[in-house]
Computed example of a mutant assay.
Amino acid sequence: MTGVTSRVALVTGSSSGIGAASARLLAARGMRVVVNYLRSGTAAEEVVAGIEAAGGQAMAVQADVREVAAVENLTERVRTAWGGIDVLVHNALTPYAIKPFQDMTWEELGGKLDDEMRAAYVITKAVLPAMTEQGWGRIVYISTGLSHRPRENMIALGTAKAALVQFARYLAQELGPRGITVNVVEPGPVEDTRMAAKALDEEQKKQQVAATPLGRLAQTGDVAQVVAFYASEDNGFMTGTTAAVDGGMSM
């Protein structure tokens, strides 16, 4: 089995936000990191350059993680360079509508559900053979507190992420005997992300902060710390769990 310092981690959607913060932290802790992106090639290369400048190893690989052929190309590139993928952090966020159900089309609601589950299905299928062969793996899915705490106009994202959380539990049960843990990180609003900018105005941000015992919104680094634990050798006996990274908002 590979040593601690040579684990290979794939972080989907890691050109910015939680994905980029997670990629940097995993690299700082000794993993070789695949920075996956869809369109933001320049930003992904900047994440790689920052990791390498700090003494880490990283590569940027473009792929739409909803597409089987694109993901097969991604895993083949990684395999050629570094071998199999030991850690999957699935963070890539597909587009979604922010509107009331009454104004929503089935294409908007059903399309988001399909995108969410298709991406999780495709990328997970791709990494399982190598993890199964070595009897060790870490899978971490990024969800949202909206999966069980509704907020106005967020039905498409919240429903899709609720499906992802249950998917993760079923996988945890099935993959545990293979030495693969599957866990979910569920942030509340994260201040330094595009999602927060899109979904929260200033008044809503103030309301969210007021409802948080720790008195602030999360930063991407707060979320990355939990991702890194779930992805590590230290997490040998937690699977099928969901960690709320929300400053106590969900209590």
Results as ranks from 00 to 15, higher is better:
Gly111Met: 03
Ala97Cys: 15
Met104Ile: 14
Leu109Pro: 00
Ala97Met: 14
Leu88Tyr: 05
Pro95Val: 13
Pro95Cys: 07
Arg77Asp: 14
Gly84Gln: 06
Met104Ser: 08
Lys112Glu: 15
Met104Lys: 01
Gly111Lys: 03
Gly83Val: 14
Ile85Arg: 11
Ile98Pro: 10
Asn91Tyr: 12
Glu76Met: 07
Trp82Thr: 13
Ile98Glu: 08
Thr75Glu: 10
Leu88Glu: 02
Asp86Leu: 04
Asp115Tyr: 04
Gly110Met: 00
Val89Phe: 08
Val89Met: 11
Trp106Gln: 12
Trp106Thr: 15
Tyr96Ala: 05
Leu109Val: 01
Glu107Ala: 00
Pro100Arg: 01
Phe101Glu: 02
Leu88Arg: 07
Leu109Gly: 00
Gly84Asn: 09
Gly84Lys: 07
Val87Gln: 09
Gly111Phe: 01
Met104His: 06
Pro95His: 07
His90Cys: 09
Asn91Gln: 15
Ala97Ile: 12
Glu107Tyr: 00
Lys112Asn: 13
Gly83Pro: 10
Phe101Tyr: 10
Ala97Gln: 13
Val89Gln: 14
Ala92Val: 14
Arg77Cys: 09
Arg79Ser: 04
Tyr96Cys: 03
Leu88Trp: 06
Lys112Met: 10
Ala120Thr: 08
Asp115Met: 06
Ile85Phe: 14
Leu74Phe: 11
Tyr96Asn: 03
Asp115Glu: 11
Val89Ile: 13
Glu116Thr: 08
Asp86Ala: 12
Ile98Tyr: 02
Val89Thr: 13
Ala120Cys: 02
Asn91Met: 12
Ala119Asp: 06
Pro95Ile: 09
Thr105Tyr: 03
Trp82Cys: 14
His90Tyr: 11
Ala81Glu: 05
Glu107Gly: 00
Asp86Val: 06
Lys99Val: 04
Leu93Lys: 07
Asp115Gln: 02
Leu109Ile: 01
Lys99Met: 05
Pro95Gln: 01
Gln102Arg: 12
Arg118Pro: 01
Trp106Met: 11
Lys112Asp: 13
Met117Cys: 11
Leu93Tyr: 10
Arg79Gln: 09
Pro95Tyr: 04
Asp115Cys: 03
Phe101Thr: 03
Val87Lys: 10
Glu108Tyr: 01
Gln102Gly: 13
Leu113His: 02
Gly84Thr: 15
Ile98Gly: 05
Thr94Arg: 05
Glu108Gly: 00
Leu74His: 04
Leu93Ser: 15
Thr75Tyr: 08
Phe101Gln: 04
Thr94Asn: 10
Asn91Ser: 15
Ala81Val: 02
Pro100Asn: 04
Gly83Thr: 11
Asp103Phe: 01
Val87Ala: 11
Gly110Ala: 05
Lys112Val: 08
